[in-house]
Amino acid sequence: MSGALALALPRPVRRQIWSIGGGKGGIGKSLLAASLGWQLARLGKRVVLVDADLGGANLHTCLGVPGPSRTLGDFILRRVERIEDVVVDTPFPRLRLISGASDVLGAANINYQQKVRVLSKLRGLDVDIVLIDLGAGTSHNIIDFFLISDVSLLAVVPEPTSIENGYRFIKSALYRRLRNAAPNPAVREVIDAALDQKSTQGIRTPLDLLAAVEREDPAAVARLRRELGEFHPRFIVNQVRSPADIAVGHQLVTACARHLGVRASYAGYVHYDDAVWRAVRQRRLFAEKDPDSAPALETRQIARSLVEGETLALTW
C-alpha cells in the first residue's frame, strides 16, 4: 500500500474494500463484479458496488438498473457533500450501487486529495464489503484503488493479450507499491529504471529489481522484500472453455511465484456461456436470471471462497 495513503485511511476490522482489475477491457470484468456483488449479498453481506470504469462505466446495465442520476463524479466534484448521497438501491436486497456513468475516475483529472477523500469515505460506508470495478488500464488511480484493497482481484481470460496485460498490471501495481515504500531517492531511481521499458539496466522482473536494489542499497532491500511478501493478487480466470483453460489459473500462480516472486492465488474460474451474453442483451444480471447456470454457480463459489479465505490449490 502507498505509505501516505495508508496513514490517511482508517482501517476498520469488519468493513472491507475489494477491487477487481484486469488491465484489459472487454474481458467481462464488470459482469464479474456485478455477479460477485450479487452473490455476496445473497450470502448475507451488505454490499456497495462502485463503478470506477474509465470511460466505459456500465455496471448499472449489468445489474439491470437504469443509469442513476447521481454518480461518483457528483461526489468527486462536490456537487454532493456526502458519499451516501450517490449510493443508490438496486432491486436486490443488501446490494447497492455507486454508479460511475459519465464520470472522471481513472482519468488524470482526479487529484491526490480527491482520491484520498473518495477512499476515506468508501471505507466509512456502513456496509460489509465495498466492491470496486476498476475498469481497464494501469493508470495510477486504478492501481491505487487496487493497492488499498483488502482483497485485490485480477480478472483475465485465457487469451495471450489478456494474460500479457494481467502481468503488466501486476508489475505496475507492485512497482508502485515498492516505489511508495522506497526509503530514499537512490532506490526510487532504480525502481523508475525498472518501470522504463527502454532501460538498459536489464531489470525485467521484480526479482531482478530486488537484486538491483541490493547492489545499490543493501539496507533497503529488506523493506522492499516485505512489501513484495504482502502483495497478494488473486486471479479469476473468466470465460474458460476447457480444463486446459482452468489450468491456466494454476499456471499463473506458479509462474508468478517462480518468475516474479509474487505470492498470487487462484480465486476461481467462470465458464464461457452464451446465457451470459443473452442476459446482457436483455439488461439482466445473468446470475440472477439463470442461477443454476455454470457461470452463476461458479461466481457463487468464488464469492463464498473469498469470504471464507479459501483459494483453489493444486492437490499436492
Partner: peptide, 17 residues
Amino acid sequence: HAAGLYDADALATYSLL
C-alpha cells in the same frame, strides 16, 4: 503441471520468459 507451464505456447509463460 510444470511441463505444461513451459510449453512453447503456454499462456502463462510465453510473455514472461
